[in-house]
Design a protein around this nucleic acid. Sequence first.
DNA 1: GATGAATGAGGGTTCATTCAT
DNA 2: GATGAATGAACCCTCATTCAT
Lengths: 196, 196, 196, 196
Amino acid sequence: MNDSGHSTNSAAGSKRKDARRNQQLLLDAAAAVFVTSGVEAPVRDIAAKAGVGMGTIYRHFPTRADLVIAVYRHQVDACAEAGPALLSECPTPYAALEQWINLFVDFLITKHGLAAVLQPDNSSFESLHAYFLDRLVPVCDRLLDAAAERGEIRPGLDGLELMRGVGNLCVGAESDPGYDARRLVALLVTGLRRTR
Amino acid sequence: MNDSGHSTNSAAGSKRKDARRNQQLLLDAAAAVFVTSGVEAPVRDIAAKAGVGMGTIYRHFPTRADLVIAVYRHQVDACAEAGPALLSECPTPYAALEQWINLFVDFLITKHGLAAVLQPDNSSFESLHAYFLDRLVPVCDRLLDAAAERGEIRPGLDGLELMRGVGNLCVGAESDPGYDARRLVALLVTGLRRTR
Amino acid sequence: MNDSGHSTNSAAGSKRKDARRNQQLLLDAAAAVFVTSGVEAPVRDIAAKAGVGMGTIYRHFPTRADLVIAVYRHQVDACAEAGPALLSECPTPYAALEQWINLFVDFLITKHGLAAVLQPDNSSFESLHAYFLDRLVPVCDRLLDAAAERGEIRPGLDGLELMRGVGNLCVGAESDPGYDARRLVALLVTGLRRTR
Amino acid sequence: MNDSGHSTNSAAGSKRKDARRNQQLLLDAAAAVFVTSGVEAPVRDIAAKAGVGMGTIYRHFPTRADLVIAVYRHQVDACAEAGPALLSECPTPYAALEQWINLFVDFLITKHGLAAVLQPDNSSFESLHAYFLDRLVPVCDRLLDAAAERGEIRPGLDGLELMRGVGNLCVGAESDPGYDARRLVALLVTGLRRTR
DNA sequence: GATGAATGAGGGTTCATTCAT
DNA sequence: GATGAATGAACCCTCATTCAT
C-alpha cells in the first residue's frame, strides 16, 4: 500500500517523476471534484479536472476507494494523531473527546458524500471503510475509555458506534443551510455524560 | 366512469379488482426491494419482484417519489397520529417525545436508504421529502414545545433539525449488526435534557 | 367494408346505437388529434379525447390506417366527386384540373402528417395509401387526359405521379409560415402546360 | 494534447488511427442505415452496422443531428460549391439553375427520410436544418436572382421556398419505382419560367 | 507509463396491442 | 360491446472499465 521498493528507480520509494506528479494532480483534482460532485463523481470528470487520461487514474488508484482513501489520508492521519495530543492537553478526557469529535466533524462536513460512503454496506468502498475504522476507532476508543474511567461518561458505548453515529449526523450537512451537524453531534456527546 | 351499475365492485376504492391487487403487489414488492437495494432500486427489479410489467409501475406511480410515498404513507401517517396521543397519555411531554422518537426510529431503521433520501438535495425526491416534513415536523415541533414549556429540555432545537438528525442516525442501521441506532438516538435525546 | 347485414340488430346495416355513437366520437376525436399531433398520434390520446377506452378504437378500427381512412373518407369522397363536376363546369379541362388540384391541396395541408403518410413505404399505412389512390387517381387521370386531348398540357404524366408530387409538396405545409404549398403546387401545374 | 512527438500519426486530422477509422465506419454505416431505415433509425442499428459499440457513436456524434450532418456534409458542400461554377459555365442562369437543382435532387433522392427531416418542426434536428439552409439557400438565391434579372423566370420565389419544395418532391422517391422525382422537379422549375 | 477510444451493461421511459373484467 | 390495466419490446443515454496505440 505504501511506497514499496519494487520499483527499479533509484529514488527511495518513488516512481518516475512524472508519475509522482500525476499522482498529485489526481489527488488535487479528486479533492476538488469530490467537494462539488461527491465521492461518486464520474471518473471522467476527475481525469478531466486533473488533465490526465482515465487510464492514469486506474493505474494509480485501481479502485475508487483507493482514490478516496488517498485523498483523505492526510486528514484522517492528522485526526488520528490529534487524539493522544488532545488527551494530554485538555483538562479532562471528556473535554478532549469533545474536541476530538469536533475535529472529526469538521473533517466530514466539508466532504460531500463522504459520510454516506462510510456505510459498511457499500461494497465498493469496503477498503475505505476499513481504513477509516482502523485508523480512527482506536483513537476514539481510548478517549472514551479515559473519560469513562474518570466517571465523566457512562461506559458501554464503543468508539466504532460513536463514530458511525457522528458520521451519520454529518450526512448531507454541507448542502442544507438549515441543518447544523455540529450542534446535533454536540447533543449526542452531551447525552453521553454521566447523569449524576 | 364512476362505479357503473353492472360492476360487481362494491368497495369505494379504485376501478378494478386486479388493478387494486397489482397496486398492492407493487407496494409489497417495492417495500421488499427497498429493504435490500434501497429506494433507488431499478424499476425493473421492483416490477420483477411484483411479477408485473414495468409499465404497470408507471401507471400506478408515475414517478419514483410517488411509489416511495405510497409505500411509506401508512407508516408515516401512523407515526404522525401517534404524537398527540402520546402527549396525552404519557406522564410528561419529554416522555412522550422519547416514545415518539422511538416510533420514528423503528419506522426508519427498517427502510434501507429511506433516511438517505430525506436529504433535501435529492431533486427527484422533492415531493417525498415534502411529504415527510409536512406530516411529521409539526408533530415533532409540538412535542418539543411542550417539553420546553415544562422546562424538561433546553429550548432552541426545532423539530425539523431533530428529525433530520434522528433520520441520519438511522442511515444504514439495518445492515450493520454492530450499530444500534436506537441507542444513539437515545443519547441524542438525552442530550436535549435541561441540565439541572 | 360497408355495413354488412350480419348484425342481429333490426336497423338496416347498423350496430347497436351506442356503438354507432362511439364510432362517431372516435372519428371526431381522431380528426381533432390528427390536426394537432399528426396521424401518428398515440392511440391513448385519441381514446382519451373521445372519452372511450382504447379497446374501443381497436374494435372499430383494427389498424391505424383504418381509422385514418375513416376520418378522411368523406373528404376524399367529396374530392373524388368534385372531379367530374369541375370538368363539366369549367371552361377548359386545364382549368378544371387546376381547381381540382386546389381542392386536393386544401384537403392535405390541413392534415398534419397526412401527406407524409401517403408515402408507399410506410407499411402500416398500406391500406390508407391504397384507398387514396383507388379513389382519387382515376379522377386525376381523367382530368389529365381531357386536358391532354385538348392540347393544353403535355401528355405523359399520369395521375398517380402528379398526386404523389402534389402530396409531397404539402408535407409539413401547415407548420411553416414561410412555406406556401399552394404556390408551389401552382408552379408544378403550370409546368405541365404545353409550351406553345 | 496536440500531436505529440512519439505519435506516428502524420495526418493533421484527429487523434488516433483507429478512432478515425471508426468515425469513417460510422459514417458509412449511418449512410447505409439511413437509406433503408431513415435518419431516425435506432442508434443501436447504426452501431451494429458499423460493428462498434453504441458509446462510440455518442463519442463521435453527441446528437443525432451531428451524425446526420456529418454523413451529408461532403455532399452538401459539393452541392453548394457547384452553384457558382454552374453559373459561370452555363449559357444562361436558368440553365445553371436547372442543373443545380438536378444536383440537389440527385443528392436527396438517395437519402431516405432526409427530405422529411428538413421539415423545420423537427426539434431535435434543428442544427441539421440550419446547416442545410445556411449552406444551400444562399446559393439557390443567387441562381434565382440571376435568372430573374435576365428575365428568364418570374421573380418572387425565394430560394428557401424552392428548396423546400424540391426537397419535399424528393420525399420517398427512392422507394417507389413509379415515382420520378426528377421529372416532377423539372415540371416545377419549368413552371418558374416567364410565360412570354 | 499515459492516453482516451471503445465497449456494453445498466437503467429510465414510452406506447402499441392484448385481454380479463 | 366497452373498458382500461397490463405487458414488454424498443428506444434512449450514461459511465465504469478495459486495452490498443
